Amino acid sequence: MNSHELFHTLHQLSRHLTNTLNEALKPLGLYGSQWSVIFVLKSKGSLTQKELCEYLFVEAPPMTRTIQRLVKQGYVLQVPGKDKREKLIQLTDVALKMFPLWEKTVIETNQSLMKHFPETSQEELFHLQKSWLQQLL
């Protein structure tokens, strides 16, 4: 396979998956990018914006917009950190209450996308993705 085919196919797949997730979350008032931030904060606890950027491989300007939107929606707070310049991003009680509904929607969307693959293929795909990502980090 030519390397441009790999990048082209991954880009198309990524766009399709992103759009599918956005459509699933739209009735709940979220986008996939917001879900990613919420999921990481739920999994790892409070993080700085820089830590979120590094973990999610997102540049600062789009992360700032995502965080600002989540603050306006009442899903995250920016609280002072140890350093006066540092702000920790953390989930609100509202977000923690909504999390199971968002997670259910994401899981159902994932299952819908994967339903045509045998379970062994799904497990292999997940393993390959995790292994590849670990090699890149």
Rank of each mutant, 00 (worst) to 15 (best):
M1C: 11
N2C: 10
N2V: 07
N2S: 13
H4F: 14
L6C: 03
F7R: 10
T9C: 08
T9Q: 14
L10T: 06
L10I: 08
L13S: 08
L13R: 08
L17S: 12
L17T: 10
T18F: 10
T20V: 12
L21E: 13
A24D: 02
L25W: 05
L25S: 03
K26M: 09
G29W: 01
Y31R: 14
G32V: 02
S33Y: 04
W35H: 00
V37S: 02
S43T: 15
S46D: 12
L47M: 15
L47V: 05
E51Q: 15
E51R: 08
L52N: 02
E54D: 14
L56R: 04
L56M: 10
V58P: 04
A60C: 02
A60L: 08
T64H: 09
R65G: 04
T66H: 05
Q68R: 14
V71C: 06
Y75T: 00
Q78N: 03
P80R: 07
D83P: 00
K84I: 11
R85G: 14
E86Q: 15
K87S: 09
L88W: 06
I89S: 05
L91G: 05
L91Y: 01
D93F: 01
V94P: 00
L96S: 07
K97Y: 10
K97T: 13
F99T: 06
L101Q: 14
W102S: 02
T105M: 04
N110V: 05
Q111F: 08
S112P: 00
L113V: 11
K115Y: 02
F117E: 03
E119W: 05
E119L: 15
E119R: 15
E123V: 13
E124M: 10
H127F: 13
H127V: 05
L128G: 00
S131N: 09
L133A: 13
Q134M: 09
Q135T: 03
